[in-house]
Write a protein that binds this DNA or RNA. Structure first.
Lengths: 107, 107
DNA sequence: CCGCATACCTAGCGCGGCTAGGCTTAATCG
DNA sequence: CGATTAAGCCTAGCCGCGCTAGGTATGCGG
């Protein structure tokens, strides 16, 4: 899947993944890629900076957790994050409706 | 509708508009904006450069037409353009399917 | 004759995601 | 045991696209 198509939608995808439950960064990547049915192939260099930004915006929060002797940063969505996700979902609906209106297709 | 969401989808939208029939730039803008049901609000500064690029890629072609004593550049989609549009539509389906898979929603 | 709508154009910026790297520790394999 | 892979984390910097903000010209209604 080509690059720039994800512009502006990535926040939503990561928030949606974390809305299912806390997860560490590496897991978020695999979650999104898997849930997309192989459509997306997010890279670490794409995801980690976004997670940091989302945390700064208080949409998610993190804590260090040790697992199998190793340190993981576990992220959890905040209530602000859920609100933002709701907005993003609504925007997505509008957006995809707009696209369908122009290209004239179901789905 | 915020900005970067259209990234990578604009070519498809303009090609789709022109697939309905030849039109000049200004009309393309209004067509897309109208067909989107008011979701998009494309500006001239966004659309004209894209039309030029699409023409360079031989996806559309243009000719000057005089209308009511004025000069318009009328664009028409080429067969390469239709092929590209088909690909873009397929990509759009994949993309939106991927998003739905992650955010877990119909539409 | 003024202002608005129509119709075209472009330079330059801003920023988001990707590329491409780098670090550490646990597990696996020869 | 030493080497390689996988699991995890991170960041600097580039690149390209769309937007902002400007500019021009003409026809038409008041």
């Amino acid at each position: 899947m080509k690059g720039e198509i994800l512009r502006g939608h990535l926040d939503m995808l990561l928030l949606a993944a974390l809305a299912r439950g806390p997860a560490h960064g590496y897991a978020v990547i695999e979650l999104v890629n898997a849930d997309s049915g192989g459509v997306f192939d997010l890279q670490q260099g794409t995801v980690y900076p976004i997670l940091h930004r989302l945390e700064q915006e208080d949409l998610i929060k993190s804590r260090w957790v040790s697992h199998a002797g190793r340190q993981r940063r576990e992220y959890e969505i905040t209530s602000d994050g859920r609100d933002r996700l709701d907005v993003a979902r609504a925007d997505w609906k509008r957006f995809s409706r707009g696209v369908r209106g122009v290209i004239g297709e179901a789905t």
